[in-house]
Design a protein around this nucleic acid. Structure first.
Length: 843
RNA sequence: GCCUCGAUGGCGGAAUUGGUAGACGCGCUAGACUCAAAAUCUGGUGAGCUUUACGCUCAUGUGGGUUCGAUUCCCACUCGAGGCACCA
């Protein structure tokens, strides 16, 4: 995942993922693969703009400066990127295509039957007859079409950050606060562009099963974020004074089985039902007061209230189809307008919130489910409220059924009666896509007084950001761009009438939602991806980045990718085949590295003191790649010592160029030498051991890099280095194989030694070492001998001997007798031999 | 409350189709080098016990279970991290 080039530069935590992919890419290159390991800049966004507000330095200038710093720091670490393919989301030649995708979204609708996006013209043809032009439609008909576009303007309430002065998407919030500045957000009705991401909710959910190389917890986070719920919309007749004829209210429930126990209905203060009927309610004054109070209630006040239930009776009632009883309709703020229908039916016996509300307003509580505890008494306390299992009671034809069977039965029944219909709801909301700020991609639309919304013609893309002097948001829900007269005023592309450009910009997530596709062809001006080009580098084989993007960037990118798939621009339904998250590097004090705690470690200092290779090796060695681990300067020292040791080994290279890797396998399997053994045999034994360790290391490092267990790959190389250190001399071939393994981790050091050894081309042009499986197979085998599962001795034998169960067991017994661990008179009841591993005697 | 993951020496961690628990590194400790210190190198380092032995016992958050054998599998719990949350 490419970085946001912030003014603060890198801290040691940032490059962890980049070091890891660099190692992976370097090894793959040595294994003969054609590797694309690219880098770019996610450079739009608020920090650069806030910096401009503070210092007057233009965002474009500050961003360019930051990129220079970042690039210098990344290069210092020896990261082997293909800089010819560098992308930058703020470059007009890049955001031309971000704008192009937006126009395509505007020009598309989601066809439910074909289950894909189609050109909006198809819908116009279907609705108004073939070859009808959108611009010939009247305003009402245009609205019908606009309601289906995947990019659309909406005036529904959205999250507004009063400090950043911009609208935000749900994904930009953290616990009801602005993710960037931590301010409480407000719900404000505002004109905003939105993208209909909810149309792709099902496909994003279904296709998670294609992502077999994604970590499960990321997929589970996405599943929760999308929050698919199936249930029943029940339509109730509304009665009461001044109720307009045929007024109904629709409630969404996932538990229609409990409907015999429904005793009231609650609607959200912001719901359309309230907006439409407020003045007609018998208690309209109290209702208006409550609705108004909710609007002005701050998030803080709501939190202070906790789960306490407030509300107001409208004076109207809904009629329960099943019981015929009147259910009073309340307005209460615990119901959310944005989820389901904004109205819920209250079943206080079997929903905790409904129970609390019923208690507060003295509403009847009816038990309709008998819990597994068999309790059948009246429900008078919250802990009697059963939600998850039980058997139906007090429910006429549902009585005796399990709640799940009852759910199916009542859904069928209500659908047949025409009282309800099965529906699917999502927690995921459509993506609020406009920002009232300067430093982002301009949304390429024009407002014409005659034609309405008109897209900027593709040939006129990109719509470039004008240079401005002032970045202050207008605060009226418009970006500072509205004040740039010579930019904002344009002629309508259709009728040439004096028109205005859309002044809002796109969110920072826009460019990052597709940038990975651009690495294939970063300077192409005629197509996002050239269809004639041979290699498009898609989908991405391996994607590494922070888990905090699970419900942000990775949701958006999957959405756009699927849309581009529908357009035929990309060839695969998913953008990232394999995903690996990076664990954070915490500060030495265990807290997050932050300026606030003054505990940030700067890579420049680490590199100056210990070298780039020591930092690379340490960051890989400090713990499992996905875990959060605290930085330890002592740990870096340890890795530096390891590299020093590797350097020193050069002085021990044997003058005789004995090729250990071609050593005969017998060397490996020889018994431990006894003191009487000839010195030449002892030397052979050591060589055999070293040869075995070398090949075990080749195997371990190779598989560990592939599975991203980089900490154990480093430890395996340390073991080999220790073995080299203990050996009297080292033969050159073995040492060179070792250098090849270490090179991806410590490229500077290994390249230098490689040259010292007389090679005149880069070590990275060499082939990756291959394991000689014969040597590993020939190694002596240590078999553990247990009595009753407890370690008592160990037996060393050759692979041939280990295959002979009787031989191994009789040898093991003799060994035990010899050591007085086993009495020959004892009865061995059971003998277990796990080949090559263990013998367990049960006595 | 729901979802996901985790808990192993003084510290970071290693080992799972069930088979030697503590690899590797840090720290600590003893020794070598040194006038001395630092650096470096070498050895030791989970706890306890004794008959000091290629010895025994205990030990992978807690309590049970399955098994010849459990850090690994199952059940119940405790604690911690991340995500979601008045989502009907």
């Amino acid at each position: 995942m490419f970085p946001y080039p912030s003014g603060a530069g890198l801290h040691v935590g940032h490059p962890k993922g980049y070091i890891a992919t660099d190692i992976y890419a370097r090894m793959m290159g040595m294994r003969g693969k054609n590797v694309l390991h690219p880098m770019g800049w996610d450079a739009f966004g608020l920090p650069a703009e806030n910096h401009a507000l503070k210092t007057g330095e233009k965002p474009a200038v500050a961003t360019a400066k930051n990129i220079t710093t970042f690039k210098k720091q990344l290069n210092m670490l020896g990261l082997g990127y293909d800089w010819e393919r560098e992308v930058n989301t703020t470059d007009p030649s890049f955001y031309k295509w971000t704008q192009w995708i937006f126009l395509k979204l505007w020009d598309s609708y989601y066809d439910a039957d074909k289950n894909k996006a189609l050109p909006i013209q198809k819908l116009i043809d279907q609705t108004f007859g073939k070859d009808t032009s959108y611009y010939d439609l009247n305003a009402e008909d245009k609205k019908i079409i606009d309601a289906h576009r995947l990019a659309f303007a909406s005036t529904a309430p959205i999250n507004w950050c009063p400090s950043c002065q911009t609208g935000l998407a749900n994904e930009d919030l953290e616990h009801g606060r602005c993710e960037r500045c931590d301010s409480m957000v407000e719900l404000r009705p505002m004109k905003q562009w939105k993208l209909r991401i909810t149309k792709y909710a099902d496909r994003m959910l279904d296709d998670l099963k294609l992502l077999t190389n994604w970590e499960d917890f990321i997929k589970s986070m996405q599943t929760n974020w999308i929050g698919k719920k199936t249930g029943l919309n029940i339509i109730y007749e509304v009665k009461g004074p001044r109720v307009p004829a045929n007024t109904t209210i629709t409630t969404f429930t996932t538990r229609p089985d409990t409907n015999f126990g429904a005793t009231f209905v609650v609607v959200a203060p912001e719901s359309e039902f309230v907006a439409r009927h407020l003045s007609l309610f018998p208690h309209h004054q109290a209702a208006a007061k409550y609705v108004n109070a909710t609007k002005h209630k701050s998030e803080l006040e709501r939190i202070a209230e906790g789960r306490a239930k407030t509300g107001v009776d409208t004076g109207w009632v809904a009629i329960n189809h099943l019981t015929g009883k009147e259910m009073p309709i309340f307005i209460a703020d615990f119901v959310l307008a944005a989820f389901g229908t904004g109205h819920v039916v209250g079943v206080p016996g079997h929903d905790l919130r409904d129970f609390e509300f019923a208690e507060a307003f003295n509403l009847p509580v009816i038990r309709v489910v008998q819990g597994s505890d068999g309790d059948f008494s009246d429900i008078t306390s919250p802990d009697q409220v059963q939600e998850e299992n039980g058997t139906m009671v007090n429910s006429d034809f549902l009585n005796g059924l399990d709640i799940h069977a009852a759910t199916e039965k009542i859904m069928d029944y209500m659908e047949i009666k025409g009282w309800g219909e099965r529906v699917v709801n999502y927690r995921l909301q459509d993506w609020v896509f406009s920002r009232q700020r300067y430093w982002g991609e301009p949304i390429p639309m024009i407002h014409c007084p005659k034609c309405g919304l008109v897209p900027v013609p593709e040939s006129e893309l990109p719509v470039t950001l004008p240079d401005v002097e002032h970045y202050e948001p207008s605060g009226t829900g418009e970006s500072p761009l509205v004040n740039i007269k010579d930019w904002i005023n344009v002629k309508c592309p259709l009728c040439s009438a004096a028109s205005q450009r859309e002044a809002n910009t796109m969110p920072q997530w826009a460019g990052s939602s597709w940038y990975y596709l651009r690495y294939a062809d970063p300077i192409n001006n005629s197509a996002l991806i050239d269809p004639k080009k041979e290699k498009h580098w898609q989908p991405v084989d391996f994607y590494v980045g922070g888990a905090e993007h699970a419900t942000r960037h990775l949701i958006y990118a999957r959405f756009w990718h699927k849309f581009l798939f529908d357009l035929g621009v990309v060839s695969h339904p998913e953008p990232f085949t394999r995903l690996q998250h990076v664990g954070l590097i915490m500060a030495e004090d265990g807290r997050k590295m932050s300026k606030r705690w003054n505990n940030v470690v700067n890579p420049d200092d680490v590199v100056r003191e210990f070298g780039a290779d020591a930092m690379r090796v340490y960051e890989m060695f400090m713990g499992p790649f996905g875990d959060s681990v605290a930085w330890s300067t002592q740990g870096v020292v340890g890795c530096r010592k390891f590299l020093d040791k590797v350097w020193e080994l050069q002085t021990k290279l044997s003058s005789i160029d004995f090729d250990l890797t071609k050593a005969v396998p017998e060397l490996v399997s020889s018994e431990r030498p006894s003191p009487e053994t000839k010195s030449s045999q002892i030397q052979n034994h050591h060589r055999g051991k070293l040869c075995l360790i070398l090949h075990q290391t080749i195997q371990k490092v190779t598989t560990d890099i592939l599975s991203f267990k980089l900490n154990t790959a480093v430890s395996a190389m340390m073991i080999l280095a220790n073995a080299f250190t203990k050996a009297p001399t080292i033969d050159r071939h073995s040492y060179e194989k070792f250098l090849l393994l270490l090179a991806p981790f410590a490229p500077h050091l290994c390249e230098e030694i490689w040259a010292n050894l007389g090679h005149d081309q880069s070590i990275f042009l060499e082939d990756w070492p291959v394991v000689d499986s014969k040597i590993i197979a020939a190694a002596a085998i240590t078999i553990i001998i247990q009595i009753n599962g407890k370690l008592r001795a160990e037996l060393i034998c050759t692979p041939e001997e280990a295959r002979d169960q009787d031989l191994v067991i009789s040898r093991a017994k003799n060994l035990l007798y010899e050591k007085n661990k086993l009495d020959p008179t004892q009865v061995v009841r059971k003998e277990i031999y796990v080949p090559n591993k263990i013998i367990n005697l049960v006595v």
